[in-house]
């Protein structure tokens, strides 16, 4: 009844999560809600990267027999997952510190009212 789960399932799900996160970033007025959307976008990219690593074999594995080195390299997607999580953590800390600094300065976190550079 249910089709076997493949790479396309993960990638379409990742695209849906990415779009919802993007909608959150672009349509909200609250800076914290925008940061939350950004984190969901990061998570969607992480999911896509790890899924591709799981289902797609790198070129050396397909053209010829390779030793342990080539097979270890199929985990490159997971290595970059580690990097994505690290960078997202750094981004979250920095973004929320900026939100707090803006709030202390302007008494608001409403993005539509942070328009001093327009005037």
């Amino acid at each position: 009844m249910l089709a076997p789960i493949g790479l396309s399932h993960y990638l379409v799900l990742s695209a849906i999560l990415f779009s919802i996160g993007m909608f959150g970033v672009l349509s909200m007025r609250n800076l914290i809600a925008m940061v939350m959307g950004l984190e969901v976008m990061f998570n969607a990219v992480l999911l896509a990267g790890v899924a591709v690593a799981r289902y797609v074999a790198p070129l050396p594995l397909r053209v010829a027999q390779t030793g342990g080195e080539g097979i270890a390299m199929t985990l490159t997607g997971q290595v970059f997952g580690v990097f994505i999580i690290t960078v997202a953590a750094a981004e979250a800390a920095l973004a929320l510190a900026l939100v707090l600094a803006v709030y202390r300065e302007r008494e608001t976190v409403d993005a539509t009212r942070l328009d001093s550079m327009k005037h």
């Binding site: 349509s27 909200m28 007025r29 609250n30 914290i32 809600a33 940061v35 939350m36 984190e39 979250a92 800390a93 929320l96 939100v99 707090l100 709030y103 608001t108 976190v109 409403d110 993005a111 539509t112």
Partner: peptide, 19 residues
Amino acid sequence: LVVFAVLLTRDVFQGNIPH
């Protein structure tokens, strides 16, 4: 971190309003 930021900025009652 996000929960703390929400609590510290006291805009909870205004909430998550789209523009």
